[in-house]
Design a protein around this nucleic acid. Structure first.
Lengths: 328, 328
DNA sequence: TGACCGGATCAGAACGTTTCAATCCCGCTC
DNA sequence: GAGCGGGATTGAAACGTTCTGATCCGGTCA
């Protein structure tokens, strides 16, 4: 059992507990000689600060919360990695929670985070309702929206321009000569899917033919291919709301004798690791996911640590088109 | 600012703080009438328990730590999802840390976890040295090893049988008639890569030709393909230490006119989402990753909550071969 | 009637830090 | 040698819970 506390250290070093605390938190305030004595005692006793006591007294903790919609999704995984990197560098612990798209679970998770008195929360909200987040902020917990633009100016957010991404993809297809383009997407209740369509249609100049699938995995892509094939009327190009859809689609088109890109050009979204390595490498829209996580965390911690000077920012990253064989 | 504490609730409900605490922690101990009064007060005041104070007094927290080697890796992502699921169901918060393969970073992260006084730690150790973990356990923090078998009987662990997985893969290739088999792998300093080779060779009956790459992504797979092609002497079958290697390899073999599976059969490992949807779908060895995370967490929380009756277990899951076109 | 019982409630002391006003000590100046 | 200034150090209060032993109260039994 770890029962060595700050006063054991104090006793060992022959100083008062207050001094030990100073060594721990404001080393510059204490003379080098005593500092060394204390540090030695800490080492000898294997003292580890009791975070809860510290949080309780100081009124704020060294933890932040991260609430994502789907841990399994590589997009969030990359974001999470960026978050962890920055947080851990600054000595913060990250409490991870997965709302799995369920509003109830998100609510429960936020409660747990509030109980832990996290310093702030990074959240990809599972719906548009800002009430829960306001309640957090009333509690003095800063909130930064991730992958979701803030509606209000007193709120930080980082997001990626999905409209722009959709435009870029379709503009590229059109420059390549595509006349009829289909948009294959996941549920249109998802903001990303909607925004990408909006951008795509803006570039296209009129409504796109849309194939909407319930999920966004390769299997759904294959089903989308079947649908297109059975309907006969093949487009010259397909824009998919994510790479998994695109790759599944590509596979079944190819199996059916349709050549990519000669018969049908194809653009995906996310630029997952494997996009570059599929049989016909996939043109895709890459998002700076890792960066998204890093910047969000930096904003959050700045808001926490320098509340006076902190300026709220709504950052919008621009995605980048990576051209490969599927549109060449 | 959230400054409503247990005594505000007590005042509002006209009871003592102790009673409120009882309502929160042992509702059965308090009469229905007062319980209701207190619950109403909690609701009206929007009271949220201060976790740190609670931890401080009670001596244990409602958090566990999870330390993985590489958050970005889908294997760990799935494990993490399983962990989060169970923990959150039981009201535990998960503190995530990523050692990124660096022993120093792992050490720092474990210190942070110790400061947070986590109840226990799930860890995929970045090396074999058990000293750090012993130090944690001396502090009363339970430890469960993830994806790494425990050497000692007084230690829980969950792992997947990589030797068995390697055997299964190669046995399958041999049954299919393969005579010369190559093992394409990541760094052989990684236990998984080593174990899979060991199993593979056990099935093969003699040493395998090995192509060792520095990383385990599709690009490395493509480089491995180039190497095999340039050396001329193509095998009948390749077993890859993971799917990304296998898919990259497949792509470049196919581009070079080598037919899969007719000229070269191919087995990957991990059964990632995309294995089923590549141009030639990939035979792969699937691991119960999600399950791994769930069971590990259940073991840990059992060890924490029922230290008396808890029996340490070393669980070894068996992977499963999923046969697809690349070996048909 | 009074002693006794048991369940519900209470009061107050912890838990291990941080904070802040108070104190100490030392070298300087006059 | 007294007085002063200022950096280093101290000691005790406070943070919001939980826990423990004590108290209260209504009812039962002799």
């Amino acid at each position: 059992m770890s029962d060595v506390g700050i006063k054991d250290v104090a006793a060992r070093a022959g100083v008062s507990p207050g001094t030990v605390s100073n060594v721990l938190n404001r080393p510059e305030k204490v003379s080098p000689a005593t500092r060394e004595k204390v540090e030695a005692a800490v080492r000898e006793l294997g003292f580890v600060r009791h975070g809860s006591a510290s949080t309780l007294r100081a009124g704020h903790s060294k933890t932040i919360g991260l609430s994502v919609i789907d841990i399994g999704n590589p997009f969030f995984t990359d974001v999470t990695a960026g978050v962890e990197e920055v947080a851990s560098d600054l000595g913060y612990a990250v409490i991870l929670s997965n709302s799995a798209g369920s509003r109830a679970k998100e609510e429960r998770n936020l409660l747990v985070l509030a109980e832990q008195r996290v310093r702030g929360v990074l959240i990809t909200p599972s719906d548009e309702d800002p009430a829960r987040l306001d309640r957090l902020r009333e509690r003095g917990i800063s909130v930064v929206l991730v992958d979701h633009p803030a509606h209000r100016p007193d709120q930080c957010s980082v997001a990626v321009n999905d409209i722009g991404g959709g435009m870029t993809a379709v503009r590229h297809l059109m420059e390549r000569g595509a006349k009829s383009i289909v948009y294959v997407t996941g549920p249109l209740t998802i903001r990303q899917c909607l925004d990408r369509r909006a951008g795509a249609e803006r570039a296209y100049g009129r409504p796109l033919r849309v194939v909407e699938m319930g999920t966004m995995n390769p299997r759904a892509g294959q089903q989308a291919a079947e649908k297109l094939l059975s309907e006969g009327d093949l487009p010259d190009a397909v824009f998919c709301a994510n790479d998994l859809l695109a790759l599944g689609l590509m596979r079944d088109l190819t199996h059916a004798g349709v050549r990519v890109p000669d018969d049908v050009a194809l653009v995906g979204y996310d630029d997952i690791d494997f996009a570059a390595a599929s049989a016909v490498s996939l043109t895709s829209v890459r998002q700076p996911t890792h960066q998204l996580g890093r910047v969000a965390t930096e904003l959050l911690l700045d808001e926490c640590d320098n509340p006076a000077t902190h300026a709220h920012q709504q950052i919008m990253f621009q995605p980048e088109l990576v051209v490969r064989e599927s549109t060449r």
